[in-house]
Nucleic acid binder design. Sequence first.
DNA 1: AATGAATGAGCGTTCATTCAT
DNA 2: TATGAATGAACGCTCATTCAT
Lengths: 222, 222, 222, 222
Amino acid sequence: MKKKQVPSMVKDQRLITKRRDQIVKAAVQLFNEKGYHKTTTREVAQQSGFSIGTLYEYIGSKEDILYLVCDSVYDMVVDQWAGLMDENLNGLERLKQVIEAYFRVVDALQDEVLVMYQNSKSLSGEARNYVLEKELRMKEMFEKELRNCIDAGYLTMTDEELDLACHNILVSGHMWTFRRWIVQREYTIDRYCELQLRQLFEGFGLNRQAPAEEKKTEIQTP
Amino acid sequence: MKKKQVPSMVKDQRLITKRRDQIVKAAVQLFNEKGYHKTTTREVAQQSGFSIGTLYEYIGSKEDILYLVCDSVYDMVVDQWAGLMDENLNGLERLKQVIEAYFRVVDALQDEVLVMYQNSKSLSGEARNYVLEKELRMKEMFEKELRNCIDAGYLTMTDEELDLACHNILVSGHMWTFRRWIVQREYTIDRYCELQLRQLFEGFGLNRQAPAEEKKTEIQTP
Amino acid sequence: MKKKQVPSMVKDQRLITKRRDQIVKAAVQLFNEKGYHKTTTREVAQQSGFSIGTLYEYIGSKEDILYLVCDSVYDMVVDQWAGLMDENLNGLERLKQVIEAYFRVVDALQDEVLVMYQNSKSLSGEARNYVLEKELRMKEMFEKELRNCIDAGYLTMTDEELDLACHNILVSGHMWTFRRWIVQREYTIDRYCELQLRQLFEGFGLNRQAPAEEKKTEIQTP
Amino acid sequence: MKKKQVPSMVKDQRLITKRRDQIVKAAVQLFNEKGYHKTTTREVAQQSGFSIGTLYEYIGSKEDILYLVCDSVYDMVVDQWAGLMDENLNGLERLKQVIEAYFRVVDALQDEVLVMYQNSKSLSGEARNYVLEKELRMKEMFEKELRNCIDAGYLTMTDEELDLACHNILVSGHMWTFRRWIVQREYTIDRYCELQLRQLFEGFGLNRQAPAEEKKTEIQTP
DNA sequence: AATGAATGAGCGTTCATTCAT
DNA sequence: TATGAATGAACGCTCATTCAT
């Protein structure tokens, strides 16, 4: 899936980049406050610091703004994520660090992530597919890490379980944004990382207890 | 938080209920297909089987439609959920059953749940709060169940962990709808219940270590 | 070529007809004054006596207004034309009467004809073809009349000449509108009919002179 | 009527002439393809080979482009027309040659003529009058020729008839462009010249038949 | 209680024109 | 002279809402 081309009437690539950064920044703020549909292109232009005419020198349609946001959010996430990584870790420590770094990036970019998360479904066709694919590529990053742990014997999982685990990690991150009205009232990001990591790795803590055997039989789905 | 009053020009309560059921049904379908903002009130009226004028005899504004949907979705979920419950179970068995029943209700009502989930943020003020509160009330249902297990010694959790666990359960259910483009391609609802329950209870399976074989065979659904 | 369907949100056919008549009347006046492109839909609505919203209850796009005008102009022309015809005439008298009646209808409907004539090229696709075909159908009316005269021995013409003669008649009529800035200053419609008919039938009057035969040879193009 | 002054920021007259020629050439092509109103100034600039800023160094407004086109079309027509003339002919032969040459110039410059013909009504005020006057000056060329023939006894016409005859000649030429969708499918320019000349000089050919006198009386409009 | 024609504020978008470089 | 980024008035069109019937 190729990156969708957003048309611009302006030739200077530097300027395009600069203006689009302004647009994305303005859009993230406005989309967060009022949502994509209730934000007008004029508001985006104004918040970006230029006129509606200028806005349309850098985009082809309102939807392009949303696409620009989604596209850049993934890049920002991946960039910042990479910056948080300690490459010296291995095994479960490394896995936990990858996940925690991800949570922390989502926290740092929560407005951006939330906008992307809540509005990407409003994209159409090409753009939508491109964004969905970027999402899958993020999932793959966790897959790789998990598989390493499995191959090294730190974890035991079927492929199916691994796949679902990745979904759960991703969603645990998103959750920090889309349920922020409640979870961010209840936890700091530090605490959230700690608790959520434990819950991802150990679940509800069944096996932390002594009489594991008893409980084990109870787990079975009827 | 009181139920928000949706104004109607019509007196007959029976008729109001009947018409609003039609409206909700029509809206769920349309909102799923095109989203709340891209669906027009005319379309809702037509799909409901009456005129735009009649529609406005039973609602005060477009937002009321969304509110009606969200409100009724919670009721439907709770109703169907109750219907799936086997009141004879206890302990962890009961907890698992509550969660699985919840997953299955979400699956049965996935269009409804998805609409509510993706659009409730478009509600404003009073209505929004009411819906958020309903969400919290669902969380409380899991809290109650989990606390029972804790009190009975089946689980060991701090209050903080319990709270997060409830969020995770709820989100695991929602996930079945808002990631359906990928998860419903990968799993049946049966398999999803099984795997997700295991992951909620045991996490990534760190502690499965020693008698791994034993456990794995036991867990599998026949 | 089928009549293009102009979409309407209104169900009452009587009302549609009435409103569209208002629209056509308003549009003819405005298009005459300022041209199609410089006339705004809001102006058409206002001149029609209703709001922009109502205008769009009866058309699908601005182009539909132009199409409505073109379509109705042909019908008006044909109607009024038929009304002017004396069916008792025959031979050249009848032919002359058909042409003169046509000129007089064009005069009576000159605003309408001019609008159609000057703007029909702005129609696109289906609508354009439909209008061109209506034009051809008018040409056929003259073809039929001329052929009758030829068959009855009143005129001698090849098919090629007949065809061109029809174009010339049609254009002589249109001319009364698209050159009205000059011809209507110079002639009354009565005089125009008289002179133009003579010129169509006799040309520059070469043969009005005595030694007609001589001159005929001179006329031929080398 | 004076030539309208088109403002330019540039001093060098040679450059002005050169750039305006580029503009006219580009505009003729674009106006033919999409019409004056649907062509943007940017497109004209691009097609001319320079930037929008440069375009506005040589014109004052979009309408000036149209004026430039109309103005130059007349000049081109007159130039090429003069080039086709055999000055040795006299009498009716000369008249026919003048008309045929005119037809052939219109054919050679049909894009230009059509653009001028279909869009000159979009000019305003001064420019419009100037163009209309140029049109009248062309008419005068035919008047002069016809009057020579009349004075020399080759034709017999009243002033009124002469005037209308000139309109008819002019329009016969324009017709080759504005009805080209049909007439150029039916005739070559050679054939068109031949047939149209015959029809202009002899009309429908009433008098080609024996009893010319009889018919003449019939022609008269009552 | 039901209808649907009417309304008009407001949206996304275009494009002729300007002016600093 | 040439450039092209910036501007914003103005356009075509939509749609939630009202109200006379």
